[in-house]
Nucleic acid binder design. Structure first.
Lengths: 211, 211
DNA sequence: GTCTATAAGAGGATAGAC
DNA sequence: GTCTATCCTCTTATAGAC
C-alpha cells in the first residue's frame, strides 16, 4: 500500500505540473491560441504522455478551471471567517483577489464563445458543483449587501454576480499594466473603484450639501 | 468615366457585403473561430474571390474594425452637436450606443491577445488614425466631466477611456441576454449604471442625511 | 474577378514499441 | 506511462483556367 500511495503521489505531482502549465498558458494566450504541443513542451514531456493524463485539450482547460474554482472557494470560505467584515467588504475582497490573480498572470481566461469547451465544462460535474458553491456564497453576500444599502438594491443579484465575475477577465488591468507606468496595486485600486463606485467615483453628495 | 465609376461602385457594394459578413461573424464567434470559408459562404462567393479583395484573414478583421471606428466617430461627432448635453451625458450616450450595438450582435470583438492580428492593426494607418480621433474626442469629454465633478477626478483619464472601451466587449450583457428574462433596454440600463454609478448605485448620501 | 482544385502547414489525437 | 513517429482533419492561402 505504501508503494501504491507513492505512485499515486507521483501521479498527482505530475498532473499538478501539467495544470500549472495549462493555467499559465491560458492566462497568457487564451484557450484558442494555446496548443497542446506547447503544454507538453512546457511540462517537459511528450504530447502522447499528456493524453494519458487528460483526454483532450478541453479536459486540460477544464482541469485548470476546476483548480481555479477550488482556490476561489477556499478564499471565499476564508473571508467568511472574518467576523468584522461586512458582506460588502467581503465582495470587495474577493474581487480584489481576482484582480491580483489576473495581474500576476495566473487567471486562466476562457473564450465566452467556444462551444466545444462550453459543452465540456457543462458536462463536468466537479466544475458545475464548485461554480454553484461559489455563486451561492457570493449570492448570499450580495443580498446582504443590498439589504444594508451598500450595493444598489435596484440591481438583480444576478447582474451583480456576473459583473463581479466579469472583472476577473476584464481587459483593462492588462492594458494599464502594458502601459508600464503604474504598479499592480495602483491598477487594482482603480479598477476596484470603477467596479464598485463607478466612473463617477466614491461618495457623491447632492449639490449644495456643503461637504 | 461613368463606366469606371459604375464598376467601382459595384466593387464597393461587394466589399461592403463582405465586411458585413465579417462583422456579423466577428460579433458571433470572434476572430479565432471565424473561418474564411464561412465568410465566403456567407457572402455567396468563392474563397479565392475573397482574397482578390482582402489579402488575409487579418485584413478582413481590420476592415471590419475600421468600419466600426468610422461609425463610432460619426456617432461621437453627432453627439458633439448637442449643445444641451454635458460632457458626462455624451460619454454616457456613447457607452449606451456601444452596448446597444453589442446586444444587436453587431459589435465585432477581437481577442485581446492575438499577435498576428495586433501586428496587422498596428500597421494599419486608417485604423490607428480613426482610433486616435475617437480617443482624442472622448479624452476631451473625460477631462471636462472630471472638471465638472461628474467623473472621479482621482482616476487618470486613461483609466476612464479604457473602461469605456472595455464595456463595448463586456461579457455581462450577452450573459444576461442568454438568460432570456430581460429585454435589451433593461440590460443596457443596468450595465450602464454599473459602469458609471458602480455596483453601489447612483446617488448615495452620507448616513443620516435624511433623504 | 470569379471559379475549381490544390498546395502547405498547423494542430489535435493516436499507434505501437519499450 | 513514456517515448517516437504518424495520422488526419481543418484552415489559410494560392495556382491556373475562364
Amino acid at each position: 500500500m505504501a508503494r501504491l500511495s507513492f505512485r499515486e503521489q507521483v501521479l498527482r505531482v505530475r498532473e499538478d505540473a501539467i495544470v500549472d502549465a495549462v493555467n499559465r498558458l491560458l492566462a497568457d494566450k487564451g484557450f484558442d491560441l494555446m496548443t497542446v504541443d506547447e503544454v507538453a513542451a512546457d511540462v517537459g514531456i511528450a504530447k502522447a504522455s499528456l493524453y494519458k493524463h487528460f483526454a483532450s485539450k478541453e479536459a486540460l482547460a477544464a482541469a485548470a478551471m476546476v483548480r481555479l474554482l477550488q482556490r476561489t472557494l477556499a478564499f471565499v470560505e476564508q473571508q467568511a471567517t472574518h467576523a468584522g467584515a461586512s458582506a460588502y467588504d467581503r465582495l470587495r475582497a474577493v474581487t480584489r483577489w481576482a484582480l491580483q490573480l489576473q495581474l500576476a498572470g495566473e487567471m486562466p481566461t476562457l473564450p465566452s464563445q467556444n462551444s466545444s469547451l462550453r459543452a465540456e465544462l457543462m458536462a463536468n460535474k466537479a466544475y458545475l458543483d464548485l461554480l454553484m458553491q461559489v455563486s451561492d456564497k457570493l449570492g448570499e453576500w450580495i443580498l446582504q449587501a443590498q439589504a444594508a444599502g451598500d450595493i444598489d438594491p435596484a440591481l438583480p443579484p444576478e447582474v451583480v454576480l456576473y459583473t463581479i465575475y466579469a472583472r476577473g477577465c476584464d481587459p483593462v488591468p492588462a492594458f494599464l499594466k502594458a502601459g508600464g507606468q503604474y504598479g499592480d496595486d495602483q491598477i487594482v485600486d482603480w479598477v476596484l473603484s470603477t467596479c464598485f463606485d463607478g466612473l463617477r467615483g466614491p461618495v457623491r453628495r447632492p449639490a449644495g450639501a456643503g461637504n
